[in-house]
Amino acid sequence: MTTPVGEDDLTAWVDDRLAAERRSVVERYLADHPEIAARLRQQQDQRSALRSLFAPVASEPLPATMRIEAIAASRRRARPAWFQAVAAALLLAVGFGGGWGVRTRTLPPQAGIGALAREAGYSYRVYASDTQRPAEMGAGEKQQLVSWASRRIGSKVAVPDLAAAGYHFAGGRLVATPHGPALLLLYDGAARVRLAVLSRPMDIDKDADMVSTRDGDVQQVSWADHGIGFSVVAPGVTSGLQTIAAAIRDQAATT
Rank of each mutant, 00 (worst) to 15 (best):
F230W: 07
G6T: 11
P108N: 10
A31S: 12
I153M: 14
A120H: 08
R118L: 15
L62K: 05
V193Q: 13
P34W: 07
Q219M: 12
H33P: 00
R194Y: 04
R39F: 00
E27N: 04
V86Y: 04
S52F: 02
T106S: 11
Y124I: 10
T2C: 03
T255Y: 12
A111M: 11
A87C: 11
A164V: 12
G216Y: 09
R23C: 14
R28L: 14
D8A: 13
G236Q: 10
D203M: 10
T131A: 13
G166C: 07
A176P: 04
T106W: 10
M202V: 11
T213L: 14
L90I: 15
A208L: 07
S199K: 01
Y167C: 04
A37G: 11
A253W: 09
Q143K: 03
L62E: 13
P56F: 04
A149V: 03
T238I: 04
G172R: 00
P109Y: 09
V57I: 12
A253Y: 09
G101E: 08
A149N: 04
D205P: 08
L18P: 05
P134K: 02
A12Y: 02
E69N: 09
Q110K: 10
H168A: 13
S24W: 03
D215M: 07
Q251W: 01
L162E: 02
V57K: 03
D225V: 12
G154L: 10
V193M: 11
F169N: 02
G154T: 10
V193F: 03
F169C: 04
V157A: 02
S155E: 14
A139E: 10
R22H: 07
R152F: 02
E60W: 02
Y127H: 11
Q84T: 13
A128L: 10
E27Y: 02
G216I: 07
